[in-house]
Design a protein around this nucleic acid. Structure first.
Length: 203
DNA sequence: GCGACAG
DNA sequence: ATCTTGTCGC
């Protein structure tokens, strides 16, 4: 995978709500033009969520909706960014990695907090935009804690699949604006998911 | 039994 | 993730 081949990049997220003891979820996928950052497309899917949240098993809870929303896309993304980990996972199989086998596209994992692996801790990157620290466990780089803005918590970037960490990091950094510590596609998917939830639950 | 815990 | 008001800061 080469950065110069990238045209469309997708951000994926899921939001939840409950109705009479039943949990529902809505998945939103936002596709933007990598060069201009303009939104090209949005697709959604919604359904009952039957799988509970268990740390390490997020994909089993969210993937069905993700795949359903991805099927509706008319502009095939060249890469998908997820709200959650990829290789930075106890079995190297976070949702970003797991999803790649269904999407058949490069994926990147972007987590907002650290999923502790084998009691391994990480040092916080220094407090300035762009600083990062590799998360190394048993001499292997799982991902990195990346500070996208000064004075804000770092995000955790890891490979999903079909991409290397330096490339994933470069792409992530190029999609950061002043609006959020998260890359634009993930941030927009997060906003879309909450907007759609408001519309759906008030139905 | 207690603490930890992506979303 | 979600439940939630005001509030501090750029």
């Amino acid at each position: 995978m080469t950065i110069t081949d990238l045209k469309f990049i997708a951000g994926v997220d899921v939001a939840y709500w409950e109705v009479e003891g039943i949990e529902w979820g809505v998945c939103s996928i936002i596709v933007i033009d990598y060069a201009t950052k303009v939104v090209i497309e949005e697709t959604n899917s919604m359904g009952i969520i039957a799988v509970p949240y268990i740390p390490g098993y997020l994909a089993f809870r969210e993937l069905a909706l993700v795949i359903e929303a991805a099927k509706k896309l008319t502009h095939a993304p060249d890469l998908f960014m997820f709200d959650g980990n990829g290789y930075l996972h106890p079995r190297h199989m976070g949702i970003a990695t797991h999803a790649s086998f269904f999407l058949n596209k490069p994926t990147i994992g972007i987590a907002k907090s650290y999923l502790k692996i084998a009691d391994a801790e990480f040092k916080m990157p220094e407090n300035r935009a762009g600083s990062y620290i590799d998360i190394i466990i048993n001499k292997e780089i799982y991902g990195k804690a990346l500070r996208t803005h000064q004075g804000v918590k770092p995000i955790f970037v890891s490979c999903g699949n079909y991409i290397d960490l330096p490339t994933a990091t470069t792409i992530t950094e190029q999609l950061i604006n002043s609006e959020s510590r998260l890359p634009i596609p993930v941030r927009l998917a997060d906003l879309a998911t909450k907007r759609n939830r408001r519309l759906l639950r008030d139905l």
